[in-house]
Design a binder for these strands. Structure first.
Lengths: 228, 228
DNA sequence: TAGTGGTCTAGACCACCTG
DNA sequence: AGGTGGTCTAGACCACTAG
């Protein structure tokens, strides 16, 4: 038995990936079970399981009890996008962060109801407009927000420490700068604007709904398969 | 000992999340070690480890040997975006997919070198332009592409099964439809266009570089914390 | 209903890092 | 230098589901 030994799950993961890329295992094909692989690799089944679960999380493999493990037919690539706090996003670029509250008043929101707070603000990088924030906060869920001026600290930042969420919806889209938005962002009317709409929830109650309109030139960068 | 028992890692994960949301453990705070938690939860340390690793992957916790585990100070939310094959993306919307090759010729690309293939094509949903694909393929890495007409099958689809990649860079941005692009997409000049630039690699060799320009109205939707 | 992955356990050793 | 997380093991039982 001169079988090479694979003693940790990362090595097993790499070997499985190698076989897929070398077409020893092709998409759609069922690969050997964990017991067989453990024997072949000379390790415990739990170690194989660890490696295979990581690959299944990444979308490379599809696993089902009884049916076994198959190489994914449509490798729906999963890209992980980091959604940082705006302050940090600006400071990570080596720029100086500044914040300016534009408006703050209570009102009625179609989804959040009557007890809602509407806050608009501008985040700047080196005193240049970076992103315009248009936010509604549910005061029923986050009553403390009613006592916050949001002049020194942005709602973006305040909410993180005062109203943790359990889940959120995010939508990325492209839009055109309207006249009003163009003035806020110091851009020309009709310029392309990257827009992020986000709703965050505490269980089933919506905490806040925000639209972030980024100044022209903004990009979101991410990687795929980088960690595997 | 009337301690509630947490017998599986999901239950432990839920309990940890509960304590964070209930502010029993606040951001920045070091939480008890795995041995202590295992004793408290009445389970094995490996089970606690499983739960904590999942939370660390999600960005909720920060773990370091010797230093211990802390609640993340800046919960850099990680949103997972699925990047499906265009055909599937259209069919998932209940629309009929169709594809039309626009141009195909070899040429020189500044990054891929002289042995490159340039392919432009249009993907349609119910015969309406959906996304314009502008792609370069490295023929040194994927020589089989030279014999492919890309008339019946799109390069987007062909590459998946014929040139698996190990990693990729992705950039999302917003742009304005130029005159030429507007004609391709059956849109008006100056309309907002969502753009995805992607470069995929096989180890250190770039396989393909593609720009996908989506017809106005396109959105990418994703969730955050949905799986936790 | 039988086979496969999902998970737990108790113990062990190791790698890393902070103090 | 010592404490913490990272990982492996051998064995066991359970949950799901294809045939």
């Amino acid at each position: 038995m001169s079988q090479p030994q694979f003693k940790n799950w990362q090595a097993i993961q790499a070997e499985v990936l190698r076989r897929i890329h070398a077409r020893e295992w092709v998409p759609g094909q069922t690969i050997p079970g964990e017991v067989d692989l453990a024997r072949e690799f000379g390790c415990a089944r739990a170690t194989v399981n660890r490696a295979m679960q990581a690959l299944a999380d990444a979308g490379i493999l599809e696993r089902r009890r009884k049916a076994g493990t198959r190489v994914a037919l449509h490798p729906v690539s999963k890209a992980t996008v980091d959604i940082p706090v705006i302050r940090q996003e600006i400071e990570d670029r080596g720029a100086t962060y500044s914040y300016r509250l534009i408006n703050r008043k209570t009102g009625v929101h179609p989804l959040l109801g009557a007890n809602a707070l509407h806050v608009t603000a501008l985040h700047q990088a080196d005193d240049t407009p970076f992103v315009f924030e248009d936010r509604w906060i549910n005061l029923t869920v986050a009553p403390d927000a009613a006592t916050q001026a949001f002049e020194a600290i942005s709602a973006n930042e305040w909410l993180i420490t005062h109203a943790p969420y359990t889940k959120g919806d995010i939508t990325f889209s492209a839009a055109i700068a309207t006249k009003g938005l163009a003035e806020r962002l110091d851009a020309t009317e009709g310029a392309p604007v990257f827009v992020i709409d986000r709703t965050t929830w505490d269980r089933d109650r919506a905490i806040t709904i925000v639209r972030l309109s980024y100044a022209p030139g903004y990009q979101i960068h991410t990687m795929i398969g980088g960690t595997i």
